[in-house]
């Protein structure tokens, strides 16, 4: 029987960074929605704010460490998310075939993808810019509120709210369900970082040119 070879899909630094986003962004996002809707009393809302701030710090420190310690991986991420071809447009037109698979129970032909698919590229662009914006505006609101002009504080508040909620909805409504649906990829990101070569050949055919045998 042929051995099922493994590919290092996500290195340890990437997995740790992703964990920091999970442990930072998700609590900050949930409490952010609570802070917006204010459904509870003062004590509960105060606790939500403390969790929001703690989550924001985890996410910010994770991002800074990743950018400083893994610039090569950041550059690769840039290359991946901003490299769009006609295949990506065609992939987006059929939503990667996910509605057919999930709702109709049948598979359709989809254009070949690299390490990440077009939906993940779009998500990557949103996370990159959205994350940057919510971190900067959040810092303005948290550490610089008495120092900045009211106009900047007002815009920082509104931008933090709108971008934060949009990003949270995309992550909770799209990224997480689809991540769990693609179970081998989910296990790879949260656990070993490995992916079977057979799976990669089927789902990431273009990526096969970018990998090399370990000596």
């Amino acid at each position: 029987m042929e051995k099922d070879e493994k590919i290092l899909h996500h290195s340890l630094s990437v997995r740790l960074f992703h964990w920091s986003l999970v442990l930072g962004f998700l609590p900050a996002g949930f409490t952010g929605v609570l802070l917006f809707l204010r459904p509870f009393g003062d004590d509960m809302m105060h606790l939500a704010m403390q969790i929001h701030i703690a989550g924001a710090w985890i996410m910010t420190i994770g991002c800074v460490l990743f950018f400083v310690l893994c610039p090569g991986r950041v550059a690769r991420f840039w290359q991946e998310i901003f490299h769009w071809t006609k295949d990506d447009i065609d992939w987006m037109k059929v939503s990667g075939g996910y509605p057919h698979k999930i709702l109709l129970g049948r598979e359709i032909e989809v254009p070949p993808m690299g390490k990440i698919n077009s939906g993940q590229k779009l998500m990557g662009i949103m996370v990159f810019f959205g994350g940057f914006i919510i971190i900067i505006t959040g810092l303005v609101l948290y550490v610089a509120l008495p120092l900045v002009p009211k106009e900047i504080a007002w815009y920082a508040d509104k931008i933090h709210l709108i971008v934060g909620i949009a990003l949270f909805l995309c992550v909770v409504g799209g990224h997480i369900p689809l991540g769990i649906y693609n179970w081998p990829e989910f296990v790879s990101m949260f656990g070993s970082g490995l992916l079977s070569k057979k799976h990669a050949e089927k789902h990431h055919p273009l990526w096969m040119d970018e990998i090399e045998k370990v000596k």
């Binding site: 493994k6 590919i7 290092l8 090569g72 991986r73 550059a75 690769r76 970018e210 370990v214």
Partner: peptide, 17 residues
């Protein structure tokens, strides 16, 4: 962790930089 393949090193060309 045992694996058989890994990604090639990142190369950034002048235009991208």
């Amino acid at each position: 962790m045992q694996y058989d393949y890994k990604e090639k090193e990142v190369k950034i060309n002048r235009r991208e930089f």
